[in-house]
Design a protein around this nucleic acid. Structure first.
Lengths: 144, 144
DNA sequence: TATAGTTGTAACATTAATTATTACAACTAT
DNA sequence: ATAGTTGTAATAATTAATGTTACAACTATA
């Protein structure tokens, strides 16, 4: 199974806020129209991003704003904020291996450190990419 | 969402075959008992591993065997064989961004290379770990 | 060559996760 | 006050993953 589309939607939201903040009021309806999903989906994402300190939202008046400079928000920050994987674990372990079997009993121990290395490699690469990189490239595609 | 448990189940299967091949006939029922899933799930996994050239199976008589030396099978080989992610893409993109919106129209272009870098980092780490590593550690836990 | 045991696979059932939707109270600026 | 908006609960719909049953095809061996 793939990593939830919430991750790419969240990045999309940031790109929209940055692009349109001077010309439009950034409401959940406005963002929903660009991402093409229900506004409630956007509000839930924004609420997670707000908890992580990545955006500011003022209730009532309408208007989401990015809380930090673009080059201080990494893709890992966003990934963590929107909780794409259960419990922070990228790999789903089969639940009840047979504890009577020596392999079943020890497979978890034998694998955990290796799966964790793999996950770390991925997260490490995510940390190297910031919103500044993404939005710079998006703008250059938009100009074309 | 997490990466399918098929991945860890497949590794479990290899560890079982290697551990018990001299003392037991390795049938799907035998493996199902250790992993604690339905034998058909095991057969489906074995069939994918066979297509990838990682195991040999003889129909009728019962008996799965590992097709290559353990240090020539990487976790990436197994991951690819059991098709944990749709279409080889780790990240799920939201389907229909609004093409009327400049951001919606270009977000895919702006993100693709970055997502692909992240995925590559993960796959690269998977490639560094072989079944020999896993099974060595499993055996050492079993001895304790 | 019959038999017992096994694999391969289709068809279907079940469960779980994700995403979408409706509804409405709480809030804010004007 | 009012119009517009966010926050969130409740629920529905959809999709994906996993589990199960059933049986034909196959193989080794008696």
């Amino acid at each position: 199974m793939q990593i939830s589309s919430r991750f790419t939607m969240a990045i999309h939201i940031f790109a929209c806020i940055d692009t349109f903040q001077n010309d439009y009021k950034i409401t959940s309806d406005f963002l929903a129209d660009s991402v093409n999903v229900n506004p409630v989906v956007i509000r839930r994402l924004l609420s997670q991003l707000k908890s992580a300190g990545l955006v500011n939202i003022t209730r009532g008046s309408g208007g989401a704003a990015i809380a930090k400079p673009l080059d201080e928000i990494t893709l890992l920050d966003i990934y963590n904020a929107v909780e794409c994987v259960d419990n922070g674990e990228l790999f789903h372990f089969h639940e009840n291996p047979n504890m009577q079997c020596p392999v079943g009993k020890n497979i978890h121990n034998a694998l955990d450190d290796k799966l964790s290395r793999i996950q770390k490699a991925m997260e490490n690469e995510m940390q190297k990419i910031t919103l500044a990189d993404v939005i710079r490239d998006a703008q250059s595609f938009i100009k074309k």
